[in-house]
Design a binder for these strands. Structure first.
Lengths: 255, 255
DNA sequence: CCCTTTGTTCGGTGACATCGAACGCGCTCC
DNA sequence: GGAGCGCGTTCGATGTCACCGAACAAAGGG
């Protein structure tokens, strides 16, 4: 009723399960009654799903309220660990951070969005853990743009159709044609810049990580605008990024 | 049919969903037919669940085979980020690793098992990422024993009933009475030692992290036996652990 | 101590999860 | 190159079980 698209050939019961999971996250844990009201289902239904999840560690009960369980962390670590990009790029990202003193990021994409897969701190690790494992739009950050630039044209179109080009700052690219020009430029020069297009005052530069003709992800360096001038990005940092990419390519080829 | 305990009041459809998820992990991705055979359900059933999961990013399709998706990593990072222990203990673990040059671990427990929530490398980060986010029995590592020692007696019994005391090495405590003696000792001296009880040649020392009268987790230092002698553990390292614990306690109190 | 609100249990019932057969495709192997 | 196997996917028919709502049991709060 609330979701208009029931046309899909999925399992409805799973749909409510996932809704409950998302609700538990949004609210940082919740009770049965609260969940039932929010999801629009009976209390007993919610209770049933929670019981199943509890048996598998996806949910824990503290007092009267249910919370998402560490089983998610378990599976999450597994999924990340399976990514070639992650295994081949970790060390490169570490070194990049040491050499530049700025944040370094390993990024990949799934379902038309980019995810921060691995990051190293620069000044403080707090920000890293805030972003780590979160989804981002691909049009407004260096890594995402670097990936988009090397994706088939129809896939780029599909992604833009699905997720749009929301403005994060005044400098975000929100026009389709403008994005295509930018992607062509990135393809040509081999790297993508982000000048306050995602967060005001944050600049970044990213390069694509390709393997077997496909973009697997991107490697990027980000930091405050006053330190990451266009000149520094396209000079020192780009050189280091190129070296790191090369190292990762080799590592991917011989994995 | 394969599972004998259908007595639980859960949702059967969720049960097969979780079975599929686990199968996808065990096999590092699989096709519909393979999953259907392994789970003992119809292909169309599998396909339905996969479609639902795909819509929510829990699964991705590469070619003809399905793999677990990065949505798990997203939720996983969220769950860890909500742990008080993690937010309050990260920095302490970092410093501990720098000061001792050994691996440091932040551990917590759920459902009677311990999980490695945060770790820093010591010599190599590879091992850290192997263990990070995995479950462990609580009776055979320092952090787990430190937690057990400060849990109510009936809960300890329930845990042992559920998970048993499997022998990981020749030195693993496999006897219930012996475990209880050990736990009493730990309670008295305030720290737990692990001398090759989990992995041969690996020693460790752990202290409990308590807050509001409850054990929230444990902090531990681990490394090769030849460097982590009983004397060093109970001397220098214990001192540093105590300092770190104190810092975490303060951080927890004022969170 | 009542009275509200919570989590939990319990049958009854119709929606829907499940099944099996059929389809279309890509592959291999004669 | 076409016959045949295997795959993922679709489609109805069916009977199971996910769902509901009411009743129950604890747990606070006034």
């Amino acid at each position: 009723m609330n979701r208009e698209s029931d046309s899909k050939r999925g399992v409805k019961s799973d749909e409510t399960l996932f809704a409950l999971i998302e609700l538990l996250r949004e609210r940082d844990g919740a009770g049965v009654t609260e969940l039932a009201r929010a999801a629009g289902v009976a209390k007993s239904t919610v209770h049933g799903h929670l019981t199943s999840m509890r048996d598998h560690g996806f949910v824990v009960k503290r007092g009267q309220t249910y919370h998402l369980g560490l089983q998610f962390f378990d599976y999450g670590q597994y999924v990340r660990g399976r990514l070639d990009i992650f295994r081949a790029g970790m060390f490169a990202a570490d070194r990049l951070e040491r050499e530049t003193g700025e944040m370094s990021w390993l990024i990949t994409h799934q379902g038309g969005k980019a995810m921060y897969v691995y990051g190293r701190g620069g000044e403080n690790d707090i920000d890293v853990n805030k972003l780590l494992g979160t989804w981002a739009h691909m049009h407004c950050n260096s890594g995402g743009k670097a990936i988009l630039a090397h994706l088939p044209e129809d896939e780029v179109n599909r992604i833009v159709d699905t997720h749009g080009l929301p403005a994060r700052t005044d400098d975000t690219i929100t026009d389709r044609d403008e994005l295509n020009e930018e992607l062509a430029r990135i393809r040509e020069q081999g790297y993508a810049l982000n000048q306050s297009e995602d967060l005001a005052g944050i600049h970044a530069i990213g390069v694509p990580l390709r393997f077997e003709g496909e973009v697997q992800g991107a490697l990027s360096v980000a930091g405050p605008a006053h330190r990451l001038s266009k000149e520094r990005c396209e000079g020192e940092i780009l050189d280091r990024l190129r070296a790191a990419t090369n190292e990762i390519d080799v590592s991917l080829a011989y994995r």
